[in-house]
Design a protein around this nucleic acid. Structure first.
Lengths: 223, 223
DNA sequence: CGGACCTGTAATGTATACAATAGCCTTTCC
DNA sequence: GGAAAGGCTATTGTATACATTACAGGTCCG
């Protein structure tokens, strides 16, 4: 995407992920255009892209709103992420380069520092956790898969700013990352898939616990 | 989408699926605009949507071309479709309405007619097969899942016009559909998932065989 | 003779004006 | 006073003009 469209995309996406625009908030093209100093044309392009990525929903009358996720939507999002990221780990095990494994180890060492201090360094944890997972997605070598993951990975980020991470959860996360690295070193696709699957499932329940604690209706684990 | 944008979307999509625009063909906005009697603006919107759905790829310099799929892309597409449609079947088993099951049975009866004659009625088979699978996707009740499936289901349609279906393959397909209906009647999610998974995997190999027969490089089953 | 740069041409990116449509408020009639 | 209908306003859809960027061809210099 080019300059103005990219500006609009990042602006709207940022407003949504930061929580400045909550679920259901209306998105008027003209207002967004003046807010980020471009014309409506690139704003429209950004909105359509965000719609494809499920950040935005449109009414039957073509008006745009920040997406509202039901508990089932969230549970389903995690179910899809579990499958897709497990699959990505299996593919990555056969394709990942040694340098990428080292980069993952470096990011996970940083995660260890972030969760090992007196208080959990949430910002650092989030950044290195994201980078760690991104390497797996990249190593899987499937753009289609990467695009699908993009629509489910960022979904629950809104809550991240609202809560402190549970130390036990992030410590487990760190250990699971280490095990994934071991699976990659052995190039064991099924091991990698299993570790990643368990990792995302545990993250789902950690998220769900925090969600309920925040006084909202939790997602239902079905099936 | 509104009128002009929808016109452009269907026009370009149709040209790609019909094979009139082969893989790698350049897509110039102005030319497409005059071809379907609208301005560049709705054409651009259609191209961006088709890009999100992976029908179109863009060069680093922002030019648009009909997507070219490598053998690994195709194999990966089927792998994703296997996972996602298996998941859809499992979800559908818990949610599908009796009328939907009856509709599936009706479509599969039509499939039986299409594949049981002196020659296979390809057009009828394709139409009813598609409707059958669409009911499963709808019954799964997840728009996100439906959107993901849309990007992998149509992928290999280009070849459908070029070959006659193998009678054994379509007959098996018919039988597998029947078994899926049985699983739905019992509301057995894991049975439904297993049947659908096997169904798509078999379809992949049928596709791959036809692909090789057509003198092209077949997709590689990896892992 | 080859390569690099520069210029012309053609494509895409952006802005803006205009058209169509949906929503809302007001007004009018029962 | 309420409900329905009509017009006004706000928002999105489309077209077009202009800006910007990339590709290609040629020319100039080494």
């Amino acid at each position: 995407m080019s300059k103005a469209a990219d500006t609009a995309y990042r602006y709207v996406r940022g407003e949504i992920l930061s929580g400045a625009l909550g679920p259901g908030a209306p998105l008027r093209e003209e207002a967004l255009a003046v807010a980020c100093g471009v014309s409506r044309t690139p704003v429209r392009e950004a909105l359509r892209r965000l719609e494809a990525e499920r950040f935005i929903q449109r009414s039957e009358t073509q008006r745009s709103y920040v997406a509202t996720l039901s508990p089932d939507d969230i549970a389903e999002g995690f179910a899809l992420r579990t499958m897709l990221e497990g699959h990505a780990a299996a593919r990555a095990a056969a394709r990942i380069a040694p340098e990428q494994i080292e980069a993952m180890a470096a990011h996970n060492a940083a995660v260890g520092v972030a969760v090992g201090g007196a208080t959990v360094d949430t910002a650092s944890f989030v950044a290195h956790n994201r980078a760690f997972h991104q390497i797996v997605t990249d190593a899987a070598g499937s753009e289609r898969l990467a695009a699908m993951l993009a629509t489910v990975v960022e979904q629950p980020i809104v809550l991240r700013t609202a809560r402190h991470y549970d130390r036990e959860a992030v410590t487990r996360s760190h250990a699971e990352h280490d095990e994934l690295i071991l699976a990659f070193r052995r190039r064991d696709a099924e091991w990698a898939r299993a570790v990643m699957t368990a990792h995302i499932r545990r993250a789902f329940h950690a998220y769900d616990d925090a969600f309920r604690q925040a006084g909202l209706t939790g997602a239902r684990t079905e099936e």
